[in-house]
Lab assay of single mutants.
Amino acid sequence: MGTYKLILNGKTLKGETTTEAVDAATAEKVFKQYANDNGVDGEWTYDDATKTFTVTE
Rank of each mutant, 00 (worst) to 15 (best):
residue 54 T to M: 10
residue 8 L to H: 03
residue 21 A to N: 03
residue 7 I to D: 03
residue 55 V to Y: 02
residue 12 T to G: 09
residue 52 T to K: 03
residue 49 A to D: 10
residue 23 D to H: 04
residue 19 T to Q: 05
residue 46 Y to C: 01
residue 2 G to V: 15
residue 51 K to F: 12
residue 7 I to E: 04
residue 39 G to L: 08
residue 40 V to G: 02
residue 10 G to R: 04
residue 12 T to H: 15
residue 1 M to P: 12
residue 44 W to N: 00
residue 15 G to I: 15
residue 25 A to D: 09
residue 9 N to K: 09
residue 9 N to Y: 15
residue 26 T to S: 14
residue 26 T to Y: 08
residue 42 G to M: 03
residue 14 K to S: 12
residue 19 T to Y: 12
residue 18 T to Y: 15
residue 24 A to M: 12
residue 28 E to N: 05
residue 35 A to R: 01
residue 34 Y to Q: 03
residue 1 M to E: 10
residue 39 G to M: 07
residue 13 L to G: 08
residue 7 I to S: 04
residue 6 L to M: 05
residue 30 V to T: 12
residue 21 A to M: 03
residue 6 L to D: 00
residue 52 T to D: 01
residue 54 T to I: 10
residue 4 Y to H: 02
residue 19 T to M: 15
residue 36 N to V: 13
residue 31 F to E: 00
residue 26 T to V: 07
residue 52 T to E: 04
residue 12 T to K: 12
residue 42 G to R: 01
residue 43 E to W: 13
residue 40 V to S: 03
residue 33 Q to E: 07
residue 5 K to H: 12
residue 13 L to I: 15
residue 33 Q to L: 09
residue 40 V to C: 05
residue 23 D to A: 03
residue 15 G to L: 15
residue 14 K to F: 08
residue 24 A to H: 09
residue 54 T to Q: 06
residue 53 F to C: 01
residue 7 I to L: 09
residue 13 L to W: 14
residue 52 T to A: 04
residue 15 G to D: 08
residue 56 T to G: 04
residue 8 L to E: 01
residue 40 V to Y: 07
residue 21 A to T: 05
residue 36 N to D: 10
residue 13 L to Q: 07
residue 52 T to H: 02
residue 53 F to A: 00
residue 45 T to I: 10
residue 42 G to H: 02
residue 4 Y to K: 00
residue 52 T to P: 00
residue 4 Y to M: 01
residue 2 G to T: 15
residue 43 E to F: 12
residue 55 V to A: 03
residue 11 K to A: 11
residue 38 N to V: 15
residue 28 E to A: 12
residue 30 V to N: 07
residue 43 E to T: 14
residue 21 A to D: 03
residue 51 K to L: 09
residue 47 D to A: 04
residue 7 I to M: 06
residue 7 I to Q: 05
residue 12 T to V: 12
residue 9 N to H: 09
residue 17 T to F: 15
residue 31 F to W: 02
residue 2 G to K: 14
residue 52 T to F: 02
residue 50 T to F: 05
residue 29 K to D: 06
residue 30 V to H: 10
residue 5 K to N: 05
residue 10 G to T: 15
residue 6 L to G: 01
residue 2 G to I: 15
residue 11 K to M: 13
residue 4 Y to R: 00
residue 29 K to M: 12
residue 5 K to I: 12
residue 6 L to H: 01
residue 50 T to Q: 06
residue 16 E to K: 07
residue 8 L to W: 12
residue 40 V to A: 05
residue 44 W to V: 02
residue 15 G to N: 10
